[in-house]
């Protein structure tokens, strides 16, 4: 079975309109990617990394300068007509559609560009508006929507045509927590319930989004793919151990905690005034956590707070690029 998306040494150079207007930009630099059918794949990178450029090439809006790109095994350059039948695309912050149409009319209009029978389209639209908690908005004019509602509508537009592969360019850009969560949950559900039939390629510059949502993540910077793996495996690249912090009521004999198997480092500070002892453990093995908790109880103390810090994709990015994200 051919991959949903494949690129081979894909390169895109933008030339300035006139020579004197500056140098050309290499937005994609020999990108090799393979996304399997049924994957929820994330492209994570800072602004200007080349994410949108890649999506534009895959959605037949832009030609590669060199290299190849395939969608469902079809060459995006030659077989673009066939590619278009299988895809759709939604971008964050999009203001597409017409303000004087209602939400439902607007979604219907875009479905007509895919030649979908009206009754089928409207059924899907109502179903999805329901899932996005937007049914009460269906007869509102598009220009009256809030940013979050508008973006939910845009995302629905992408799903209504029931594409094989959906490209989402920063779908939760600038949205509040609730709207973002609704959109993420829907994306995840759509991919999962398709039983490896549907594929989503989304771009994001939110670390947590890539981490929580995606089966695999490619980290892109300056037009290059620096790493590509599951979030768990990527985080293994940075060998920072798990750190556990505990705030407990003042504890007399703490030294025993340092001898628990799996604890590599142990420090404690007492705050006598507030009757709090802060404990910090560096763990080689996370199974030590339960022994630590029961050790604290045996010592007659109560746990006030517990925090576990683990490496994030941000740490991975810093390690790969040598600088932070924004």
């Amino acid at each position: 079975m051919e991959p949903a998306v494949e690129t081979k040494k894909l390169t895109r150079v933008f030339n300035p309109k006139k020579k004197k207007e500056g140098a050309s930009v290499r937005a994609l630099n020999s990108v090799d990617l393979k996304i399997e059918k049924g994957e929820l794949f994330g492209l994570l990178g800072p602004n200007g990394a080349g994410k949108t450029t890649l999506l534009k090439i895959l959605s037949t809006l832009l030609l590669p300068t060199s290299g190849k790109a395939y969608v469902s095994g079809l060459d995006v350059e030659k077989d673009y007509v066939e590619v278009r039948k299988r895809i759709n695309m939604v971008s964050g912050g999009e203001i597409s559609g017409y303000g004087l149409l209602t939400v439902r009319e607007n979604l219907w209009m875009f479905s007509q560009f895919y030649g979908i029978k009206s009754s089928i389209a409207l059924e899907r639209i109502d179903d999805m508006l329901g899932k996005f908690g937007m049914l009460d908005k269906k007869s509102e004019k598009v220009r009256t929507l809030s940013t979050g509602q508008r973006q939910k509508m845009n995302v629905i537009r992408g799903f209504v045509t029931d594409p094989q592969i959906l490209f989402l360019d920063e779908p939760t850009l600038g949205l509040d927590v609730n709207a973002s969560r609704t959109i993420r949950d829907f994306i995840l559900d759509w991919v999962r319930k398709s039983e490896r039939d549907k594929t989503v390629l989304l771009t994001t510059h939110y670390m947590a989004e890539a981490d929580q949502l995606c089966d695999r993540v490619a980290i892109i910077d300056d037009g290059r793919i620096l790493a590509c793996d599951s979030p768990e495996n990527l985080k293994k690249l940075v060998k920072s151990e798990t750190t556990l912090r505990l705030d407990v009521t003042t504890m007399k004999d703490q030294r025993v905690l340092g001898t628990i198997p799996g604890v590599e480092k142990f420090t404690s500070t007492d705050d006598l005034e507030n009757n709090i002892t802060s404990l910090r453990f560096v763990l080689g093995d996370e199974s030590a956590i339960s022994d630590i908790v029961s050790g604290v109880a045996k010592g007659g103390s109560k746990i006030l707070a517990l925090r576990k810090t683990e490496p994030t994709l941000e740490d991975v990015f810093i390690k790969l690029v040598g600088k932070g994200f924004e």
Binding site: L100, W108, G115
Partner: peptide
């Protein structure tokens, strides 16, 4: 042909409606 006629209708719709709404 049916697909493309639907596209024509889809894009014509906002203009037709605009006449009533504005």
């Amino acid at each position: 042909i049916v697909q493309n006629l639907r596209a024509v209708r889809g894009r014509a719709y906002p203009r037709v409606l605009g006449a009533q709404r504005e």
